[in-house]
């Protein structure tokens, strides 16, 4: 999708955050991979809900995303709290 005027801030924040996670879990690629899978599942659910026009409730809620990421990022409080800044209604 084309970039909109107010998008770059969020985009840059996301890039920095993904870099931070990659660096932190350099020796644990499975953790990074699981994080990506959670994100993709969430995105897919959001898309399904949007296409269903309100007739579909995502099975992966924001709360569940946060809980799953918290399990992954245990002992990495800074990463988790930063993740909370991205998540709607966290």
């Amino acid at each position: 999708p084309p970039l909109q005027n107010n998008q770059p801030v969020e985009f840059n924040h996301a890039i920095n955050y993904v870099n931070k996670i990659k660096n932190r879990f350099q020796g644990q690629p499975d953790i990074y991979k699981s994080f990506l899978e959670i994100l993709h599942t969430y995105q897919k659910e959001q898309r399904n809900a949007k296409e269903a026009g309100g007739n579909y409730t995502p099975t992966l809620t924001e709360q569940e995303v946060y809980t799953q990421v918290a399990k992954l990022f245990k002992n990495q409080e800074d990463l988790l709290s930063e993740f909370g800044q991205f998540l709607p209604d966290a």
Partner: peptide, 27 residues
């Protein structure tokens, strides 16, 4: 940024769209 894989890029995309949705829900 440097050595971003397609997977990384899609993570960036999901995160920034999350952030947009968050902002939309707050305003």
């Amino acid at each position: 940024s440097h050595d971003f894989t397609p997977l990384d890029s899609s993570a960036v995309y999901v995160l920034s769209s999350m952030a947009r949705r968050r902002r939309a829900s707050q305003s």
